[in-house]
Design a binder for these strands. Structure first.
Lengths: 329, 329
DNA sequence: TTGTATGCGTTATCAT
DNA sequence: ATGATAACGCATACAA
């Protein structure tokens, strides 16, 4: 029984055009061929609606033009936007994106890396929460925000400077008693440097500060309780708060509203990320903006780079401050 | 010259284990094999860190376990969330997602469909803005929100009922002079039925209404001008507004704030989509919630369904109302 | 049960 | 310049 209702192959095209298989391959790949033959082949391709099978092609050439991208999810605007930029950067370079959502699960991450390897992708870009991720030598991997050691290039915002910038902006806007709030992993990763930068500037500038850091999974009410405890005679002790993400800043704003503390009159808030309403409008809050487009471009360039080229093990890209209504300027 | 530093193949494993190629294949695919052989092969696989090459596998089996998903972008929370759910549904079924961002460009959409076909994906799920999209018979395609005709299954929210529900909720909350606002394509698509449902209920209930519909690309200021014109003696004529999306509702809220009109005291607003702050918190506004998870599941089930099975040409899934602070209830 | 051989749709190396 | 043929890594029908 012959193939029925199957997609046509090069062989079919060759038969239709009355030429040899190799000739069809040449036409498809833009290799010079006699004018007469070329049109015959092109007509046959048109007639049969032929498409090259990229699996067969990949099998031969050992190149797939596919990059695997791993993120915790696409629901967080930060991840979604970053993925969007990565996808754009890949598309511009004629690459496609195979996407995996890891849901912060280290085991799934490991599984997906293995999957990507057998998918024979040309590279992997991942934002990982698995500090022990095992990765094969055979496929280049670029990490976002997590440093795995010199062998695996890591791209991140300049989180330390971002922390400094947040403190400076608050101080510049008149704050004299600061707080830093963080929820999240105890894993060492680049974003944790936000705190260090913040603390550094507070100490250099001689501004008192308080840290409220809770573990992942802690309910947000912990922060509200914390704020409550620091309200003396109806007045919040802090006049400036740096939240480790815009998402947390949003929660804090809700709590402050509930507690009757006005923003930015009573306390000024700075978040981190640069999240925007519906992706393209104003900022949720005053914030340290991550250069997502640069991060994406950098990741793509590095993952596509010749393996033999020496790549830096950590690239930090400059952040900027953006006003979003929760500070005085 | 032999392969060097290449990923190991089944042949390598067979040699290492001292068994035949076919035996390795059987072990890999869980086909019964002698206990002795099995462990020998498994050890060899472990030792060489062997991974099956899914390209070679796909070439043989004509099945790739990859579904292409096309969306305008991942920046809009609606698209991002929908894509997230689709990806989850695919992952649960051991499928992977190849993602394409179309940026609303009909030509790119067409290109991507062709690309997907030569990528030999097992199916395509797309939210398209190309009314003339050409699609091959060889790969199943499921459309979201755009009806292409009986041959191509379309999945959407029950937009008509959503429009009705919005009108009913506004009326129920005491509104007696309604407005509908829309920005967007003139292409016929399912979401356009929101207006029809809204109008239907207004007429049945005998409530006066005004439509303000502008074309894509019109600046938002057009709506603010419109509102301005309908303010008589400091009072907005409308006491209820149904916005075609939450995104537009957000813009309208900004405009109303600027115009000194209070929400929900002076006017109540209902949006459409069910967008949430940072994906998982409160709603931006009172809204008609699209059942994104159901839509995703339905699309995935349909695209994976046996081609021979008759699939319905249009599936509409029930929407619901959610309070989000911009109405009285 | 295990091994061998063929073919999937390409590309590339040959002769022609 | 063109056509025949081997190989890519795997699955499978068939032979042992």
């Amino acid at each position: 029984m012959t193939r029925q209702n199957q997609a046509p192959t090069m062989k079919d095209v060759a038969k239709e055009a009355g030429v040899a298989l190799g000739t069809v391959s040449k036409v498809v790949n833009g290799i010079p061929v006699g004018e007469e033959y070329r049109t015959r082949v092109e007509n046959a391709i048109e007639k049969l609606n032929y498409r090259v099978n990229s699996y067969a092609k990949g099998l031969k050439s050992n190149k797939t033009y596919i990059i695997a991208v791993m993120m915790p999810n696409l629901v967080s605007p930060f991840f979604a936007r970053l993925t969007d930029y990565i996808n754009k950067a890949l598309t511009q370079r004629k690459y496609r994106m195979l996407f995996y959502a890891t849901d912060y699960d280290p085991e799934q991450e490991q599984e997906y890396v293995i999957l990507a390897e057998q998918q024979k992708v040309d590279g992997i870009i991942c934002l990982s929460y698995n500090p022990n991720l095992k990765v094969s030598e055979n496929v280049p991997l670029v990490s976002i925000d997590r440093y795995f050691g010199a062998a695996i290039p890591c791209v991140a915002s300049d989180n330390y400077s971002g922390g400094q910038l947040a403190a400076e902006k608050l101080i510049e806007n008149g704050c004299r008693n600061l707080a830093f709030m963080r929820i999240g992993s105890r894993l060492t990763n680049e974003p944790n440097k936000r705190k260090d930068g913040f603390v550094n500037t507070c100490e250099v500038r001689g501004i008192p500060y308080t840290l409220k850091i809770v573990e992942d999974g802690t309910p947000y009410s912990a922060f509200e309780d914390f704020l409550q405890e620091h309200i003396k005679e109806g007045k919040l002790e802090f006049d400036g708060i740096f939240c480790v993400t815009d998402s947390l800043a949003h929660q804090i704003l809700v709590s402050l509203d509930r507690l009757g503390i006005r923003v930015p009159q009573d306390v000024q808030i700075i978040g981190f990320d640069g999240a925007q309403y519906f992706g393209d409008m104003e900022y949720y809050c005053s914030t340290i903006v991550q250069p997502l487009e640069d991060i994406a471009e950098t990741c793509v360039n590095m993952v596509l780079q010749d393996r033999s080229a020496k790549v830096p093990s950590l690239v930090c890209l400059p952040v900027s401050y953006a006003y979003g209504g929760t500070t005085r300027g």
